[in-house]
Design a protein around this nucleic acid. Sequence first.
DNA 1: TTAACGGTGTAGGTAGACTT
DNA 2: AAGTCTACCTACACCGTTAA
Length: 675
Amino acid sequence: MSVDQYSGSSASVSGVSQSDVELRNSSPLTSPPSSHQSPSPAKQSNHTPPSSPPKEQSGNQATLQAPLLLETTSAQNVNAYTTATADDAIDPALKGLSDSFPAGPDDLQVQDPALDDFSWLPDFAPNNQSPAAVSGGANPMWPINTAFNSLPSTQPPSSTSESPSSPLARAGSANWSNGENATDLESLVAGSVEKQGGNAGKSTNIRASAASSESGFETGRDEGVPPPKKKSHARKQPEGHIKRARNAFILFRKHITDSNLIPPSVEVKHQNISVVAAKMWKEAPQEVRREFQEKARLEKEEHQRKYPGYRYQPVFRRTDIIRRRVRKDPAEDEKVDAVAEALIKGKAGGELEKEIKDQLVTRSDASENESETSTKSRSRRRREVGQLSKGAVRAQRAQARAKQMRQNLLGSNLLNMSFYNAANARLASSTGTNDYHARQDAAAAAGMAPPNGVMNGPHGHTHPGMQYVMDTYMQMGYGMDGRPLQMGGSYSGEAYGGIAQSGPAPTGVESEMYRLPPIDGNGYEWQAPPAMDYWEQGGVAPDIAPPPQQGYPMEEGYYAPGYEMEGVPAEHNMEYRLPLLMEASREDGRSFAERAPGDLIANAYAHGENESRDLPSMRQWTHEGQQTPSNHVMFSERLFDGALGSAGIPERPERDDALGMFDQAMEHAGEVAQW
DNA sequence: TTAACGGTGTAGGTAGACTT
DNA sequence: AAGTCTACCTACACCGTTAA
């Protein structure tokens, strides 16, 4: 695997997208990228002095250079203690870009001694320190001191330095050390650090991995190789968040991970490494503990110096939430114990690996009798017959969501409104059985409701395209909030008759209204109702009242009786109403209009049923899944077709068929939705 | 239908400092 | 006293997308 794969252009590795790079490359940085520690003006990214914040810089080169270059010259301590922002602020991909830009004056600003001089920090890098330097010479044999220089670098340092996926950890990083592998590099580092002295050359400033990141406040690297920035999985913190100063144990633990003490072949899970670190910490000599405690103390002081007003304010988080349960493996616990024990005894690296492997073999032999049990245990994880896989469950969920979305769409008032209008258009434009006057005359003569083909209102009045006005409620489906939508008529009494039957006519229902826009340009339009409501003309019964001059449905225009809403312009008097509930069906023995469902299509079906036609009843619909959660019938393609048929509308193949109208309605619903 | 994959978020494990 | 947060990063969960 080449180093190039870890270059900044590799989004998958670096965690930085190309677009991200381009964006930052093409626009001035207003702030250090991902910087989450800038609470006060005094708190600048340590590599960017307050006098020259990135946002004030001009020019691409300077803009990029200052915030991107984290080079720490030897003028500073090798262990320069930069803030934690450094690692986050400096995009590894952009670090690589720094090569493309010559160091400008801004570069010098990076070396603000007030902010960047962390020479106070004791050098705890095991690779460039003698064991005595680390432990004060008191415990030279303690593994924390002795193991480093002899360890094969199989355990990659931590992410902020060199993670397992880092180029450094993967031997053969030519850009890092001219082909030297990581082990060689580390041995080189000790000398390199010492050699640097006052050398301000940056390319030779190769630091020990442990020292580079132990503070968590990364200092610069060899800018030739952009260090991979692993995507942080830490809890997201708000912008400007200041991390706490680390305590001795945390520093100790990081030291463990940075020092390759535990080969990955032995342990890679950091949960277990934490356990090992804890055991080691408890067993650590006082000298070692003191060193880390002193380091923590210094870090704390520096933290206070940098953030004088800082106050630790933990965020309250719920603790009663169900956390993910991870299966505990007793064998793993044993291994952790063994690793810690071996480390404390002074074994590390290959020796440690061998020791652990031996122990595992021994345990394996000893627990041979238990293998069957463990097998059974493992088998429990297998899928049982008929049990859906994780992916299958996921797919089912996705399908359910999609279905729900379709349902919502179908149930939306917009779609149903389109259905209604489409059906109405067919009704209004149909001929033959829908001869209004003929049926009116016939019905009047017979003293009964008009024949099939038209839907009645409560007054028995029929007219193609106006049925909904006569009936009390027009089920429009469901709004996006899940509440049923209905379209009401003109009168307060009639408009809410469905509900009023079981109680007083609702008042204040207007508050439950939804107002929809007039629809134009789609073959019909809602128009302002006539000033005179034809239902109340001269006390004439509506069913025999002559049609008004205005407000009648035409082929491409539907008129509605007036309904004035407070605050609604007169030209928008046609309203869709949102009652609390819809009357879906009524008992027999009443008039058709009373027992008919308030749904247009349901009306049609019910009417057809009343005519002894072989049509499904509401109950059947329910069983067929055409029922809404609140027992209302929803429009659907099938219902739409059925409605046309039950309404006695002859098929007209030469024109748009029902399916075409359905599609048209769907399309229109989409258009309305965009309104 | 399912696996694979990319992206995102977080539990887990520790000690100590710190706040509430 | 209880809970958070520092360090670390893998494993896992979850989602959406894509391909077989």
